[in-house]
Nucleic acid binder design. Structure first.
Length: 438
RNA sequence: GGAGAGAUGGCCGAGUGGUCGAAGGCGCUCCCCUGCUAAGGGAGUAUAGGCACAAAACGCUUAUCGAGGGUUCGAAUCCCUCUCUCUCCGCCA
């Protein structure tokens, strides 16, 4: 959420910046509402002040045993006018609020301008792209040949965009998560967390998924009220990323200055409806309704957030370096960034079968955009509450990392070498082989 | 699932219709006092908005006592719904 003061004082500039990320700010409507708001709010508050003063007088009169009927008569007509005015004001403010909740963050000045993916800027590359002297397979063929990856059965259990892993591949998947968590906790200074996978609306509103992106989420209701979920009964949403529960840890908190920066990590499944992505990445593990991810979140002083972003990307890169997987870091352009981000780096890993780099991590500085929605603050030198900055990034998406390991470390015989750093998590195993070849 | 008790400021805790944004205490900040320390005395100490202003401070004003709604001239206090916490019973990984 943007600071409404900014919209009031510097609207032109903001409209321009939002346009760079393909967002048309509803200027006319906003100006109209603001104009009305000012008028109605002043009027409403004047009436309220009058009522409050009169009520106070009545109280005083009664406590002295005097007759208050004169004052009562005086404000008798006030009630209806006040009610009308209050209702009108509320209607205007909720419409303003709705606009505000749907406006994306402003891009940082260092973000390259552009319309879409093709305008993203490569920052650096790491690692050697492997060369194969045999016909390579993609991860689906590799996994199915190993008899460790089974999409047909997953479809029986749940449907499209689900997966079933077995045997050492399932274990390798677990090993990746453990390895990532351990690295971030032991070497990168993160606090490990275990968080809920079902969250309420407020949490999703805090990080920016709601109200705008409801269609991307899975919602669940308790069995006994699914036919008629009362508006009062909360229902839950499956988290689309651990960013939601982790970042909301600090919602409505004033963080002691000394505690900053906060750095949290969690390993969770993520659930996404993938509405609107029909036909994209239909094969394999790349795009699933359910996938695991290790997520990193920083809560930092506003002056530190861009340094923190570099640190965060570096922490995620370290995982790929340890796994010896080639990657590149991209600065997303204005048109390709997510809703809450002021600046985003994507890390893309090399996938030999696709002969391309694919996103495996997205690291964003949201500045105060989420903190404002969540009221996450610290006290400055004057003791005044000031919004903090929030950052989040994948460190890394586990399913996609598994894909990268399979494809990059495949051998001519269809086996897959296990990266050294993962072998301790695999009871020393150095290769995935078909069961028959064991 | 059943029975009951609760939710008040940074924390504890009083407050069952009126001068209550809220007693008292703790904590914190500043000042005074005493060689230092301890003790003591005094003052201050919620948040988010709006108006006005070039802007800040000040000022005026509104809202907020778990959340939402209602009754009332007036609600922390009464009524309804929801959420959460605690105790006991039942069930359960």
């Amino acid at each position: 959420m943007l600071d409404i003061q900014l919209l009031r004082t510097d609207l032109e500039q903001i409209i321009h910046k939002l346009a760079s990320r393909n967002y048309q700010f509803p200027v006319e409507r906003f100006n109209q509402l603001e104009h009305d708001r000012k008028k109605i709010q002043t009027h409403t508050e004047a009436l309220q002040a009058k009522r409050n003063a009169a009520s106070k007088c009545i109280g005083q009169a009664k406590s002295k045993g005097e007759d208050a009927s004169e004052i009562l008569a005086e404000i008798a007509s006030l009630g209806d006018a006040l009610k009308t005015s209050e209702n009108h004001l509320e209607q205007i403010q909720s419409e303003l609020q709705a606009i505000l909740y749907e406006v994306p963050n402003l891009p940082h000045d260092s973000v390259p301008e552009g319309n879409g993916e093709e305008d993203n800027q490569e920052i650096r590359r790491w690692g050697e792209i492997p060369e194969f002297n045999f016909a390579i397979m993609d991860h689906v063929s590799l996994g199915e040949n190993l008899n460790m990856l089974d999409f047909e059965t997953a479809a029986k259990l749940s449907g499209a965009r689900f997966s079933l892993m077995k045997d050492n591949l399932a274990r390798l998947h677990r090993a990746l998560a453990q390895f990532m968590l351990d690295t971030h906790v032991q070497e990168n200074g993160y606090t490990e967390t275990y968080v809920p996978y079902l969250v309420n609306r407020n949490s999703l509103q805090g990080t920016g998924q709601l109200p705008k992106f409801e269609a991307d989420l899975f919602a669940v209701t308790a069995g006994n009220n699914k036919t008629n979920p009362s508006e009062h009964h909360e229902h839950f949403y499956l988290i689309p990323t651990a960013e939601v529960p982790i970042t909301n840890i600090v919602r409505d908190e004033i963080i002691p200055f000394k505690a900053l920066p906060l750095k949290f990590v969690a390993h969770t499944p993520c659930f996404r409806s993938e509405a609107g992505s029909y036909g994209r990445d239909t094969r394999g593990l790349i795009r699933q309704h359910q996938f695991d991810k290790v997520e990193l979140v920083h809560i930092v002083h506003p002056d530190e957030s861009y340094a923190a972003l570099e640190e965060l990307v570096g922490n995620a890169e370290k995982i790929l370096q340890k796994l010896k997987l080639p990657y590149r870091v991209m600065a997303l352009c204005t048109g390709d960034m997510g809703f809450s981000a002021a600046k985003t780096y994507d890390i893309e890993v090399w996938l030999p079968a696709q002969k391309t780099y694919r996103e495996i991590s997205s690291c964003s500085n949201c500045e105060a955009f989420q903190a404002r929605r969540m009221q996450v603050r610290f006290r400055n030198g004057n003791g005044k509450p000031v919004l903090l900055h929030t950052l989040n990034g994948s460190g890394l998406a586990i399913g996609r990392t598994l894909v990268a390991v399979l494809e990059n470390f495949q051998n001519a015989d269809g086996s897959v070498s296990i990266p050294e750093v993962l072998q301790p998590y695999m009871n020393g195993l150095d290769r995935l082989r078909t069961a028959g070849g064991k």
